[in-house]
Design a protein around this nucleic acid. Structure first.
Lengths: 197, 197
DNA sequence: TCTCAAAGTCAACACTTGTTGGCCAACGCT
DNA sequence: AGCGTTGGCCAACAAGTGTTGACTTTGAGA
C-alpha cells in the first residue's frame, strides 16, 4: 500500500513535505533551468542531477525517462486573463504585457520553446498551448471561424518576439524596454485579435 | 603543389567539375537537409554521410569538423530587394513575399533557425543576418537611429511566422495561403518599417 | 528495539557520437 | 607503363549518453 503518515500536501514546494517531495521539486527546478538554457538534447540527465545535488539514477526513479522528465518540467499554464472586459483597442497591449510577464517569471516557457524546435513532444505541447489555452480566451472576441487563425497569428508574433529577445538575444530586440515593446507589439496583437487583413 | 590540370570552375554544381567538387556538393546538400530537419545536435555526421552515400570520414576530410560543416551549410544570403522604389505602404507586403520565397526555396534558413536555438555559432549567424543584411536594406526608409530597432522588429515577426509555419507547423498558420499570409503580415511589417509605436 | 519499505548510492551496461589514422583504388601526367 | 597525387573506405578510439540493477542507508511504525 502507498500509505504514508506524514503531512499531506498537494503543492510541490521547496521546504516541508516528505523528503521525496523536496528532491522531486529540486529535480524539476534543475531540469527547467537546464532545458531552458540548453534545449532538449544538450540538457543531460547527469547535468540536471548534478544541479539538484543528487544521483542521476534518482532522476530515472522519479520520472521514468528523459522524455517524461521533460514533460513534467515543461508543464505550463499561460494563465491568460479575461480580455472581454477591456475595450478592444487595449486588448493587444494587455495580452502583450501578460505574455512578457509569464515569460520572465517562469523558465518553463523558454525550456518549451528551446526544446520544441527539435523535440516532437515539446512541439506538440506548444501547439496545444495556443490551440487550447489562447484559443478559448479569445473566442467571443471575434468571428467564431476566424478564432483559430487569430490565435495562430498571435502565436507568430508572441513566439517570434520571445525567440529574438530571450533565445537569440538579438540586440535591438533584447534592449527594448517593456514600454517600448508593448507600444510596438500591442497594435499588432490587437489587429490579429479583432482586425481584418 | 596544389595544381590540377582539370577544368577550373569556381562554382559548385552538381554535375561536372572534379569528382571532389561533386561529393563536396553532395555533402553540403545532405547537411542542409539534415540540419534543417533535425537541428544541430540531432543531425549526425554519420546520417549526413549516409544521405550523401559516402563515408563519414570524408565529411571530416572535406570540412574539418561538424561546426565548420554547419558553417558551410548554413551560408546564406537573404538577397533582399530594393524597397525604396516601392510606395511605403506596399513595402511590407513585398518584403513578406520575399521572405516566404527565400524560406521555401532554400533549406539553409530552416537549418539556421533550427540550429540557432541551441548552437551559439548559428545564433550569431542569425543575428548577423538581420543586422548586416536587413539593416542596410531598410536604411534610408526611416529615421537613421531607429533602423536597428525596426530591423529587429521585422525579425520578430518574420522568424516567428517561419517558426510557427515551417518548424512547429501550427495548423492554423501552416494552412494559410500565400495571399492570406501576406495580407496579415504585410501591414505589420509595413508598420515596423516606417510606422511609429 | 526491531523491521521493512522508502530513499539514495554505486558501478556498470549498451549504445551513439565526433574524430582519427592507416590502408586501398582511381586517374592524369610523364 | 610507372608514378604520385587525390579521393575513398575501413576499423577503431575516447568520450559521453540514457538507462539499469544490486547494494546500502535512513527513518518511521510495531
Amino acid at each position: 500500500m502507498l500509505t504514508y503518515g506524514g503531512p499531506m500536501t498537494d503543492e510541490v514546494t521547496d521546504a516541508g513535505g516528505r523528503r521525496s517531495d523536496r528532491t522531486r521539486a529540486a529535480i524539476l527546478t534543475a531540469a527547467r533551468e537546464r532545458f531552458a538554457a540548453d534545449g532538449y538534447e544538450r540538457a543531460t540527465i547527469r547535468a540536471i542531477a548534478a544541479d539538484a545535488a543528487i544521483d542521476p539514477a534518482m532522476v530515472m526513479r522519479y520520472f521514468g525517462n528523459k522524455e517524461k522528465l521533460f514533460a513534467a518540467a515543461a508543464e505550463f499554464d499561460l494563465r491568460l486573463p479575461d480580455l472581454s472586459a477591456l475595450p478592444p483597442e487595449e486588448r493587444g497591449a494587455a495580452l502583450t504585457n501578460h505574455f512578457l510577464d509569464r515569460w520572465e517569471d517562469d523558465e518553463s516557457l523558454k525550456a518549451l520553446l528551446r526544446a520544441s524546435v527539435t523535440n516532437e513532444v515539446a512541439a506538440d505541447r506548444m501547439r496545444q498551448l495556443f490551440a487550447q489555452q489562447l484559443g478559448p480566451t479569445i473566442a467571443g472576441l471575434a468571428d467564431a471561424n476566424t478564432i483559430a487563425t487569430r490565435a495562430g497569428l498571435v502565436a507568430t508574433q508572441a513566439l517570434g518576439f520571445a525567440l529574438c529577445r530571450y533565445v537569440l538575444q538579438l540586440p535591438p530586440v533584447a534592449e527594448l524596454t517593456r514600454e517600448e515593446a508593448v507600444a510596438w507589439l500591442g497594435p499588432t496583437i490587437t489587429r490579429y485579435l479583432t482586425g481584418t487583413p
